[in-house]
Deep mutational scan, measured.
Amino acid sequence: MDALKSAGRALIRSPSLAKQSWGGGGRHRKLPENWTDTRETLLEGMLFSLKYLGMTLVEQPKGEELSAAAIKRIVATAKASGKKLQKVTLKVSPRGIILTDNLTNQLIENVSIYRISYCTADKMHDKVFAYIAQSQHNQSLECHAFLCTKRKMAQAVTLTVAQAFKVAFEFWQVSKEEKEKRDKASQEGGDVLGARQDCTPPLKSLVATGNLLDLEETAKAPLSTVSANTTNMDEVPRPQALSGSSVVWELDDGLDEAFSRLAQSRTNPQVLDTGLTAQDMHYAQCLSPVDWDKPDSSGTEQDDLFSF
């Protein structure tokens, strides 16, 4: 819950932080000083300027060897085509990944977070970031790969997607708890209302004896509580940590079903599988986004697919 609360507080303090972009060759504004600060901008989305290598189908939802083989196929196909790589912007948030063309600003792909089953910074092609997700059109699994400016960037994108998945799962947990509370309150309110109706004398007997209905007592009954809980029953509950912020979080049926399955089948359902080692994760978390744009010590960066 700490990640969720800190993310909400950060967004309320400075929503404009989320509009910064990394990996864009110096076009961005001043960047936060450390990885923790940038992680807090996830709610509205972190932007990464990358190059799209392509996509291939895979048979399993996750796995280092599986993704490595898929990336190898994608890279080989991209090299064989001889075409310049498409420059894209990857927007990562707890909602998922939005992929747009840098030149036309046209939407290429919009992947809900619950469809993503794996992401990684490839070991062999260490400047490549990739994720595996279920197609929104059918049940097939797709591996999408992107060329980053350097290994640090690939690791940073991988960690960002993993963190977005974690925050999304926490949102789901909060929403589920809130819905259970509202359902319980609604049920209790309905029981109270039913009890009051059972003990209320029939209207005919009131008229016969000349008694008047006590409207004041009726007004004191917990009807307002019942209506408050039943009027918006169809509205999706939102985490309290975000009250007053500009973010509107809505959970669709697909996300609810997917996270429910994860909660039942996995020990740590909030953790998205990645190909990063503990050492890689520690190294990337210690980086400032400013470091992502620094040239690798191995030599001059080449803006070309064939540089790796």
Rank of each mutant, 00 (worst) to 15 (best):
G8M: 15
F169G: 01
Q279G: 00
Y131H: 05
K150D: 10
K87T: 14
P32A: 10
P289D: 08
N105W: 14
G96E: 11
L276F: 07
S260W: 03
Q197N: 04
L213T: 05
W172M: 01
N34V: 13
R151T: 03
Q240K: 11
Y131L: 01
V167W: 02
T209Q: 09
L85P: 11
L242R: 12
G244T: 01
K166Q: 13
N110V: 01
G189M: 01
L262W: 03
S298W: 05
L107K: 05
W35I: 07
G45N: 14
S288V: 03
A284Y: 00
G189R: 05
S6N: 10
P32I: 15
F129E: 15
W22E: 12
S227E: 07
D183G: 11
S245D: 11
Q163K: 05
F146L: 11
K176R: 12
N268H: 01
T274F: 01
D191P: 03
L90Q: 07
I74P: 08
P94M: 12
Q86H: 14
R13Q: 10
Q285F: 06
P61Q: 13
L159D: 03
K79N: 15
S67A: 03
P237V: 02
D293V: 06
V161E: 00
A133E: 12
K150T: 11
C148H: 03
H28D: 10
L103E: 07
G96I: 03
S140G: 14
D122V: 14
E109N: 09
N232D: 14
L47G: 09
F146A: 13
M124Y: 09
K79L: 09
A133N: 05
Q240I: 11
D291L: 07
T36E: 10
I12L: 15
L276A: 07
E33T: 09
M153F: 06
M281T: 11
R261Y: 08
S112N: 12
V157Y: 01
Q163C: 02
T200G: 08
L42N: 02
L272Y: 01
I132Q: 09
K123W: 12
R39F: 09
L223E: 01
S298I: 04
K72I: 13
T89A: 14
K83A: 06
E142K: 11
E170D: 08
P32L: 12
I98E: 14
S260D: 06
A164C: 06
K19A: 15
E177Q: 01
V192M: 04
E235N: 06
T77W: 11
A228G: 07
T300C: 08
K181N: 14
L212A: 06
I97L: 10
T120Y: 15
H125E: 11
R266V: 00
L255E: 06
I132T: 13
C143R: 10
K83F: 03
L159W: 05
D101R: 15
K5R: 01
C286W: 00
I71E: 03
A3L: 07
V271K: 04
K294Y: 09
I98Y: 07
T149A: 03
L42S: 15
S112T: 13
T267G: 05
G63F: 08
S288E: 05
L276Y: 02
E44H: 14
L251V: 06
L4G: 02
Q139F: 08
E40G: 15
Q163T: 00
L107N: 13
I113M: 09
A284R: 11
Q20S: 14
T89P: 10
A164Y: 05
S265H: 00
K87W: 13
T38L: 05
D122I: 13
P295F: 10
E301M: 13
E65I: 02
V88F: 15
V128Y: 12
S16I: 06
G54P: 02
L147I: 11
T218H: 01
Q155H: 15
A68N: 09
I97N: 08
P61I: 02
A156P: 00
S246K: 00
S227D: 12
P237S: 08
L90E: 14
G194N: 09
D296T: 07
V226T: 12
D183E: 12
L107H: 09
D296A: 09
A168F: 02
A154R: 12
Q197V: 07
K123H: 07
Y52L: 11
F48Q: 03
H125I: 11
L11N: 15
Q20M: 08
E44W: 14
L215G: 08
N110K: 13
Q134V: 13
K179P: 05
S265G: 11
L251H: 11
W172I: 01
I116G: 10
L4N: 00
F171D: 09
V271D: 07
Q20Y: 03
T149D: 04
E177W: 02
R29W: 09
F171Y: 04
Q240M: 00
G54E: 02
L43T: 05
A69I: 10
K91T: 15
T120R: 02
E40A: 14
H144T: 09
A10E: 14
A3F: 08
V236I: 08
A154Q: 06
T89C: 12
S186R: 06
P201A: 07
Q279F: 03
S245A: 09
A241R: 14
M281Q: 04
D101Q: 11
K19H: 15
Y283H: 04
S93H: 07
V247N: 00
Q240V: 07
K123Q: 13
P269I: 01
R238T: 01
V192D: 12
